[in-house]
Amino acid sequence: MGRGSLATRVLGGTAGLLLAAGLYLGLVVVPPDAVQGDVQRIMYVHVPSIVTAYIAFFVVFCTSILYLWKRDLRFDAVAVSSAEIGVVFTGITLATGMIWGKPTWGVWWTWDARLTLTAILFTIYVGYLMLRAFAEEPLAGARYGAVLAILGFLDIPLNHLAVYWWRTLHQPSSILRPGGPSVASDMLLPLAMNFAGLVLLSTYFLVERVRLERLRHRTAEVRLTRGRRG
């Protein structure tokens, strides 16, 4: 009961191995950046975590729509689990970004567009998790959560527009841009390695977290039938 199935354990193990390899590549093998020096190595955790977080939030959005449509609690279990994982990875992104910003920009935090947006995203999904925790009735909580997740996701492009018009300091995206990545090819390898590792790790987290949600559902079911009988 305490451990996952063999497949889950293999998944977790592979994620660990990939991350270890990415760590070794990023910290030891690859040369430091010409301008930033060794601090740039923080990028190998920072960038993969935010992409993983965005994937997680996209999963929340899709499963929330599916839940409202099909009313299958399995979708809701994935949504709430994925939101939690997204919050964890957004937290890592914010923290590593601040640690990178201090030596690079000279400040821990500045109200630049990307930073502000990530902070807003963080607060929206922390709010989501609190909503789920405070719901008096599980089914109502699932519906409210789904509605909030959809609103929150629609809010992202609007936040983007508003905040970008407001201020921009963060460099443009290095990888997703016309004309190919502006990161030297040997630096892309640890980035890709860590990215694959974190995606696998978050999948592992997701599987385990969904299992927890299913256990809770079963407990509630047993309680309900017992209550009816007694």
Binding site: L27, D38, V39, I42, G91, I92, I99, W100, P103
Partner: peptide, 16 residues
């Protein structure tokens, strides 16, 4: 520089 790198990686590890 390495202090910051260590801090970032350490923090990420602790969180995960």
């Amino acid at each position: 520089n390495w202090g910051f790198v260590g801090l970032a990686y350490g923090l990420a590890l602790v969180v995960l």
